[in-house]
Amino acid sequence: MSQPPDFEARLAALEARMVEVAADAAAARHLAAARDRDLADVGIKVDANRSAINALGEQVASGFTEVRGKLDATAAGQVQIAELLTRLIEGRSNE
């Protein structure tokens, strides 16, 4: 059985193409591994940011509680001042 005249050229082209395909596959594996590392890094950063945001939220809540306590104390002091002023005014009007 004889081979077509362009058989050797076609075989050489096919072999060259196989080398290119193997190189493309290696590059794809490398890119996929890099993507996996990048995704892992992003996941770590997201977790760190979530922890930081939660910690800040707790600080803010604690700060609001503290401010609310101070405002309540101030309001109580103002009530006492108002009562003292009322007594003082009433005492002067009875004279």
Rank of each mutant, 00 (worst) to 15 (best):
E83F: 10
N54V: 04
T86M: 09
S62H: 06
V67W: 04
N94I: 15
I89T: 07
Q80L: 06
S2N: 13
V60L: 13
D38L: 03
A33F: 04
S62M: 10
A22G: 01
V42P: 04
A52T: 05
G77M: 10
K45W: 13
I89W: 07
R68M: 12
A40H: 09
R68S: 08
V46K: 14
V67F: 13
A33E: 15
A16E: 14
P4Y: 05
F7Q: 02
D24Q: 08
L14F: 06
G43K: 02
A23N: 05
L39R: 11
V21F: 00
L85V: 07
V21E: 05
S51M: 13
E20Y: 00
A73D: 15
L88D: 12
E58C: 08
E8K: 03
G69W: 03
A40D: 10
A13S: 08
E95P: 11
A76D: 11
A12I: 10
E95W: 15
L31G: 12
G43R: 04
N49C: 09
M18G: 10
S51Y: 02
S93M: 12
V46W: 06
T74A: 09
A13C: 04
R68G: 09
E8R: 02
F64H: 08
S93F: 14
G57A: 07
G63D: 08
A48H: 00
G57N: 06
L11C: 06
M1A: 12
G91Q: 06
F7R: 02
A12V: 12
I53R: 03
G63T: 15
L71K: 01
Q80V: 12
A12W: 00
G77T: 11
S62G: 12
E8M: 05
E58R: 04
G43W: 06
E8N: 03
A61H: 07
S93R: 15
L71E: 14
R17G: 14
I81D: 14
D6M: 03
A34P: 00
A27K: 03
A12E: 10
F64L: 11
Q3R: 10
A48P: 02
F7Y: 03
A75F: 00
S2L: 03
D36P: 02
S93C: 02
A13L: 08
E15D: 09
F64D: 10
T74M: 13
E83L: 13
N49G: 11
D47Y: 06
I81M: 11
D47V: 03
R35H: 13
N54G: 03
A26G: 07
Q78A: 12
A26F: 05
